[in-house]
Each structure stands twice: as C-alpha cells, then as structure tokens.
Amino acid sequence: MNIVVLIKQVPGNSDVKLDPKTGNLIREGIDAIINPDDLQALETAITLKETLGAKVTVLTMGPPQAIDALSEAIGMGADGAILLSDRAFAGADTWATSFTLGKAIQRIGKFDLILAGRQAIDGDTAQVGPQVAECLDLPQVTYVFDIETVENGYVRVKRRLEDGYERIQCSLPALLTIIGGPVKPRYPEVASLLSACHAKAPIQVWNAADIGVTTADVGMSGSFTQVVKTFAPKFERHGELLEGSAVEVVHNLIERLKQNKLI
C-alpha cells in the first residue's frame, strides 16, 4: 500500500501578535512545528505501515526551512519526503494550494490513501484536504478519528460529528482528514532523525517546473481570494471591578444582575 501524508509547518505557539504600529505579524522568536492534526495523520500512516505494510511519502509546501518538518517525519518512520518550494507558490490561498498539492501527488503517481490533518492551527480553514480530493477526483472522509480496516479495496473509518460519529466505508484510493484520537503521535527516533538530516536523506525538493505548473496557476496569482485587511481583534469593555468581602461582592453582583433583568 502507498500512503501520501500532507503536512504543514506552522508557528509553534499561538501567541502570534500583530505589531500595533504596522499591523504586520511579528514572526521573530516563534518556533515552527508540524501542525498537530497533521502529526496525527502521520502517526496514523506509520501505524498502518507497521500493521499492514505500506510505503509512506510525506508531502509539504512551504519555504526552504519547512524541510525540518520533513526530517522529523522521516524520524517518525516515513519512507520519503517531498518539499514543494518555489517563490511562485508564495501567498497561495487554499484554492491554489490544493491545486499545487494535487499536481505534486499526480507526479508521485502511486497512492492508495492520502492522509491530511483536518486543519492547520495557523489558518484553521480545514479546506485543503477536501479540495485536494476534488482536484484528484477522489472520495473523501473528513474528521476521521479511527481507521478500522483497510482491505479488499475499501477503508472503513469513524467520522466525528457534533453529536456522535458515523462508521463509513469508502472505496480506495481515498483521501481522509484526521483529527486527534486516543493515540498520541510518537516521538522521532534519534537514529532516524540523524539519518534524515544526512545529505543522502530521502527528501526531494520540487519547484513549479518539476510539477508542471505555470506561475499564473499557483501562489498569489493562482488564488481567488485575497486578504484585503488584517487587524487585531478588539475585545475590551468598560468593566466594573467589585471589591470587598465575598458577602459584599456577591451582594453587589446580584444587585447588578437584577438591574439588568438577568435573574
């Protein structure tokens, strides 16, 4: 079985801030990590490799430093990795991203399962997985938290819904988006991690020409949506601080709740 895992490198802590003067993102001093849902997808793929036997190829699109995420993936047990990196890919929305990833997967050629995280913590869109599935005309199941079986050309999975879950059978090849389940992603092994950083590591870097796309179809130029404005959210209210003993503050609070007909 051939599995392709889509991962994204994202800022490691969510304390991303806007410069109050310029409105730009402050990026200094922020670690990059593999997006948590994607890490779960990777763990799922490696588990399938161990139980059923599979070749796991990891694919990411990003700047040159995203290669760190691929080394980590190989350290966890992936067999090979591909970095899509080209200035032309920059500024892509999910439309252009899914097209670019779709083209790269077509070049990889052989696959039975494509696994992706449900969503990335920087964009939170959850769009790229389903859009890649549609690009490649594959069936999809999103919000998957358990893969029951992969046999006879079908995969059986559990899909999370707001009030329970569905058990779904889906023909292969298919794309699944993965959410966190009971299994925590493993840590990379030191030996594999070291070999992944070696010059002969099975990591390839592909650019726009390698996957046969023109610059007009990818990145900012290939996108339908544009950010027209970014701003820091405003939450402040003019609050009143109630002071005194517990009895006093509670008395004052109940007065205010009554005045506003809340109780």
């Binding site: 800022p11 969510s14 304390d15 991303v16 801030k17 806007l18 993102l25 913590i121 920087d122 964009g123 939170d124 949506t225 544009q226 950010v227 027209v228 404005k229 970014t230 701003f231 820091a232 959210p233």
Partner: peptide, 11 residues
C-alpha cells in the same frame, strides 16, 4: 486567524 490573535478580512 492564528488562533484568534489576528482578524483578517478577505475578498
């Protein structure tokens, strides 16, 4: 976006 730290208006 970015866990709610930034609001983005998109067209």
């Amino acid at each position: 976006a970015f866990g709610g730290n930034v609001m983005a208006t998109i067209a």
